[in-house]
């Protein structure tokens, strides 16, 4: 029998302007993939959004969220520690370094070190460096626009200034990985409004020039145009009496969806296959995630 080749790991970075529903989207996407594959959903930073949102505890080590879906929170410092431990082999050495006051201060702000460590961790399975990340798909609920681009630029910046040594070597393989369309995908979440749409378009361009890949755009909170047009039709049907106030309301809704259409068309010029995610009229977290997930199927 032919030896079956192990499936290539996939890494999906989710980004977008703050407040567009990026984290909820990332969770819905993770749930979708977990229907057939083993998925790790990763948050970046020191504070977990999902712990407030879902009432679960989220830490550096993955914890199970549902079947085939684990969740983790990665900070730059912790990724760096893990990498150092892997490289130095001995815990006593790494303690010496990370418990030194001065090196701690340095790590806190040292240019691009945290960013590199995070990208290094995300791509560690692919690059076969460090502890194994045994997942089919890693979904990174990454930083918002500007900070995300700084994250992606870190390896190139480092590569330009430091060309020799172990860090330079790591940097080159990270660069190669984040530019590989067979491995990495980029998802931009946005809204059909001027500011988020313009920012998404700029981000799309920045991604093309930085990693040479076309990001997929997902337009969130799209109001139900068909339903609203049906209401408008109803108001014009003979025999149905509709008050002026109701007429005004329908007109307001109609102009709302028209304005959204302007920005949807604008975004489609960038990504003609852009997915639309309907507005969910609920404030119940799990219900929102389920509804958002439906439009991803």
């Amino acid at each position: 029998m032919k030896h079956e080749e192990k499936q290539q790991q996939k890494i999906i970075f989710v980004t977008g302007k703050g407040g567009v529903g990026k984290s909820i989207f990332a969770l819905a996407l993770a749930q979708k993939y977990s229907q057939g594959q083993k998925v790790l959903l990763v948050e970046l930073g020191l504070h977990s959004f999902y712990s407030d949102f879902l009432g679960v505890s989220v830490e550096y080590q993955p914890t199970p969220l549902s079947k085939n879906l684990d969740i983790a929170l990665w900070s730059g410092a912790e990724c760096l520690k893990e990498y150092a431990l892997h490289l130095l082999k001995a815990e006593s050495l790494y303690k010496l370094f990370f418990e030194n006051r001065i090196s701690r201060a340095l790590i806190d702000v040292a240019p691009a070190l945290s960013e590199l460590a995070i990208l290094g961790k995300a791509t560690s399975g692919i690059r076969q460096v460090g502890p194994e990340l045994s997942y089919d798909v890693i979904i990174v609920d990454a930083y918002a626009t500007g900070h995300f681009m700084a994250l992606l630029r870190a390896p190139r910046g480092m590569n330009e200034s430091i060309q020799f040594g172990p860090m330079a070597e790591q940097t080159r393989t990270i660069l190669k990985t984040i530019r590989d369309p067979q491995i990495c995908e980029y998802a931009i979440v946005t809204l059909p409004e001027e500011l988020p749409a313009v920012e998404a378009e700029e981000l799309h361009q920045a991604l093309v020039s930085e990693v040479g890949l076309n990001a997929r755009i997902y337009c969130n909170k799209v109001w139900p145009q068909a339903e609203i047009l049906k209401l408008k039709k109803e108001s014009g049907t003979a025999g149905v009496r509709v008050s002026d106030a109701e007429m005004n309301f329908v007109q307001e809704l109609e102009s709302l969806v028209e304005r959204q259409q302007v920005w949807i068309q604008y975004l489609k010029q960038r990504d003609s296959n852009m997915k639309l995610i309907p507005m969910v009229f609920s404030s119940e977290p799990r219900q929102i995630v389920t509804e958002v997930g439906k439009s991803l199927l």
Binding site: L88, L96, F97, I102, I162, F164, G165
Partner: peptide, 22 residues
């Protein structure tokens, strides 16, 4: 000694070019 060792470790981790820029 601790600081000296820490610096050596930094160099192991990042390479001498980075440390010299620093």
């Amino acid at each position: 000694m601790g600081t000296q060792k820490a610096l050596d470790i930094l160099q192991t981790l990042t390479g001498s070019e980075f440390v010299s820029e620093l």
